[in-house]
Nucleic acid binder design. Structure first.
Lengths: 223, 223
DNA sequence: TAACTATTCAATAAATCAATTGAATAGTTG
DNA sequence: CAACTATTCAATTGATTTATTGAATAGTTA
């Protein structure tokens, strides 16, 4: 076998290592969660409903391909994505999947039909209306994820605290809620609660990572 | 199992379909080749050295995940990537791999050390120097890939014709050669030939896809 | 140091996948 | 229509991978 062939085989073998990480649904879900902020194995178990050993093993796999890293903190081992480029890459994967796979599109519209009459708002319009002070942006993810990073101007009320804190919301402005991104239902649930209370609210599909991406590219062409 | 859990499982199952496509080195190589332009199964066989049935099967897999599409043309079935976003995604994958995996970095420098004294030139500098008319940009990929798309201003001399057409190259300017991208060795071989003839030449690491990406983002921040 | 907890390891069975081979098919050209 | 070619299908083997389980380990707190 030629020198070049051997070199290419090695190279593509390495690329495929990353690919293999992305071939398990559970691992993708873990990566998405970690993209929102560092989490202990225990937290991941509680969120996903997977077994501890299972989560740990998947994290191991991700670690071998350098997509996540970990450190101990008291009793917990905290995992996090190994760099922003990982979180960003996940968005690329979502985009591609949604573009190419009709099935993903179907699953998404299916969801939106269940949460009927929930018109989503786009990033561009949101930012404009926030500037004019017309809307309040609400981050309904857990506190720690908000602290890891949030869209500027957003206030944090974790989903589980929402009903308690309803009073603290301004009543004269429209509410826009967001969560982990297009495939997280938390914000949809929040909207439902708000609407039931007679508060005008709409859902921002994008999350923090998508927002960052948008800000980086929007100067030239808004894709 | 909750409604939401089921929905997420389905969704991530779909994402993983794309992931599975990326878990085989051979498939990644095929995707990279198709990113440069449409090709028949036969062509792919000749380039990669894989068996016909093997190539066909991989293409099948890619087709099922809607990453490629095909049409018949005379005796041949021509495959192509299903949209620019696929080619673009491949670049994302390369970037991520190179950033996270030391092994990829190692393989790359290893290569450059073999082709010693070959200083690469960056896109930014290239474009500047082309504007000033200081360099000639040379596309050494096969003719049809050049025709599918090339960096503006580049002239096409496929690698196999290079020695024949040496005379037609200007002697007063520096030559910059590029090929399919960072992981294609064709341009490196071209440089070697040129240098042996006493022609000053350097290698552009980026290919057409990388160039496109650069142009889209460079207005705001050059990453 | 002992008890406790979170995490990891090891082993298993079931399922899936990669690579190969040879045969079958579909389409084209003379 | 016949011969030809490119492409695809089908079946096999060997290798990996997933999801599980229960046990072992490492680290922390009292």
């Amino acid at each position: 076998m030629s020198m070049e062939r051997k070199w290419k085989d090695q190279l593509y073998h390495e690329f495929a290592r990353i690919g293999k990480c992305l071939s398990s649904p559970k691992r993708l879900e873990l990566l998405d969660l970690l993209s929102q902020g560092p989490k202990s194995v225990d937290q991941l178990v509680k969120i996903t409903g997977m077994s501890v050993a299972n989560v740990s093993q998947h994290l191991q796999t991700l670690h071998e391909s350098r997509l996540v890293r970990s450190h101990r903190q008291g009793n917990f081992v905290i995992y996090e994505v190994a760099g922003l480029s990982v979180a960003d890459f996940m968005v690329s994967l979502h985009r591609l999947s949604e573009k190419q796979l009709v099935e993903v599109q179907k699953l998404k519209t299916e969801l939106l039909q269940n949460h009927i009459s929930m018109e989503p708002i786009g990033l561009e319009e949101l930012l404009k209306r926030m500037e004019r002070g017309e809307v309040v942006l609400l981050d309904v993810r857990p506190q720690d994820e908000y602290e890891t990073g949030h869209i500027p101007g957003a206030i944090s009320i974790p989903m589980e605290d929402l009903e308690k804190h309803l009073a603290s919301l301004p009543t004269d402005k429209e509410i826009v809620a967001y969560c982990r991104g297009p495939y997280c239902l938390t914000s949809a649930q929040a909207i439902e609660i708000l609407k039931n209370k007679g508060i005008k609210a709409s859902r921002l599909e994008e999350g923090v990572i998508e927002w960052k991406r948008y800000m980086e590219h929007s100067g030239v062409n808004k894709q």
